[in-house]
Amino acid sequence: MTASGAHFQVLVNDEGQYSIHPARLSPPAGWRGAGFTGTESACTEFVDEVWTDMRPQSLVDQMSRSGK
């Protein structure tokens, strides 16, 4: 891995997009913790499981409104 003890957290925004962020930094405005912290590879694995639809939420809403 990278630096020893490098810790990361998983963040998510209102579009349902996930991002891996250094754990010692607080989430930027517009982001919240997704409830997972660990090494970068553990975070990647977590995201692989939870982020099943990569379309942004606004697009999902738009597409369901137009019935497609």
Partner: peptide
Amino acid sequence: RGYAGQPGLTASRFLADPFAGDGSR
């Protein structure tokens, strides 16, 4: 948007923008 079918990799290369303040990446 990211890498097709690779959400974990996407999350590690597309980071939360600390300066925009609007939840963008």
